[in-house]
């Protein structure tokens, strides 16, 4: 993963059209995913296996929402209105992963979001840390510091569940569902946003190189948790199924957050008391 050094950009206006669009889409995708991932963590504040893990879910939810806010705010520089982005879009305009469309029913599935998908978002954020697009710089550090604890939470729970056969099976089943969507989230290898952003020095990696960074991070944890088979399967087989891939929305399938999720992330129910 390396950054192409070119002149730095102080505002989005200085970027070429395609780069500007690709960066805006990347930031919006990060923001949308984090806003909804926060809801998914939030739904486990009460139902987690222990009070301590509920507290951790609450903290992670707040972190994700905070990151979402920061990222939506960066889009002002791209001529977008954060207020509209946060409160007034229909489901089909959200650039969020299919993994997040509805509430997660089982704890191991939440751990898959925690360890796998959350880490994918972090890899993309890291790639923007030394971006030529300067406005993003100072926003990423605190964010990545908080994410270290998210990864540690996912890892700690994966290790614990893997200590029993049933725990390991539940973990494997949940992780298997999330592996593909997480790997795909970085985009296709051929020409796409990753390549554009990397060539302009805006992001430190292409789709493929970021995918590799992610694999280097999660595969050792899968191995630690006794899921070597799953690790090898996805490491060796780069052939991902792109049949339902929507490149513009960085997701599989044409759906979006379900009605309940959408109402919550937009704050519909208490709209009359929106006074930010």
């Amino acid at each position: 993963m390396s950054l192409v050094r070119t002149d730095s950009f102080k505002s989005a206006d200085e970027l070429s059209n395609p780069v500007r669009e690709a960066l805006a889409a990347t930031l919006l995708s990060l923001a949308d995913n984090k806003r909804i991932l926060g809801m998914r963590y939030g739904e486990w504040i009460l139902g987690a296996p222990t009070l301590e893990s509920g507290i951790a879910c609450s903290a992670m939810a707040q972190d994700e929402w905070g990151h979402g806010r920061i990222l939506y705010a960066t889009l002002k520089d791209f001529g977008l209105d954060p207020g509209v982005l946060e409160h007034d879009r229909p489901a089909e305009e959200y650039l969020s992963s299919e993994l997040l469309d509805s509430a997660v029913e089982e704890w191991p599935d939440l751990l898959a979001l925690n360890l796998l998908f959350d880490a994918a978002l972090s890899v993309q954020v890291e790639a923007l840390t030394n971006s030529n697009y300067e406005p993003i710089h100072f926003k990423t550090r605190k964010l990545l510091e908080e994410e270290r604890f998210h990864f540690e939470h996912g890892r700690g729970w994966a290790l614990r569940l893997s200590e029993t056969a049933t725990g390991r099976e539940a973990l494997e089943a949940a992780f298997r569902k999330a592996m593909g969507p997480s790997l795909r989230w970085f985009g296709r290898s051929e020409a796409g946003f990753g390549q554009l952003l990397q060539a302009a020095g805006v992001s430190a990696g292409t789709a493929d190189s970021l995918r590799q960074v992610w694999l280097d991070r999660v595969v050792p944890v899968l191995a630690e948790a006794g899921l070597e088979e799953l690790a090898t399967e996805f490491e060796a087989n780069a052939e991902l199924d792109w049949s339902d891939w929507d490149a513009d929305r960085r997701r599989g399938g044409s759906g979006g957050p379900d009605a309940e999720t959408l109402a919550r992330i937009r704050g519909d129910k208490n709209r009359s008391m929106l006074m930010d």
Binding site: I45, G54, S58, A59, Q62, E86, H87, N270
Partner: peptide, 29 residues
């Protein structure tokens, strides 16, 4: 508190309402 916090009017308000729930769970703990 979560019953209402999950429908907070905005991301900001959801963060502060959820921080309060986190404290309450910590105190219970």
């Amino acid at each position: 508190y979560w019953m209402a916090s999950k429908d907070a009017p905005s991301t900001n308000t959801m963060v502060s309402a959820t921080a309060i729930i986190q404290d309450e769970l910590g105190h219970a703990n």
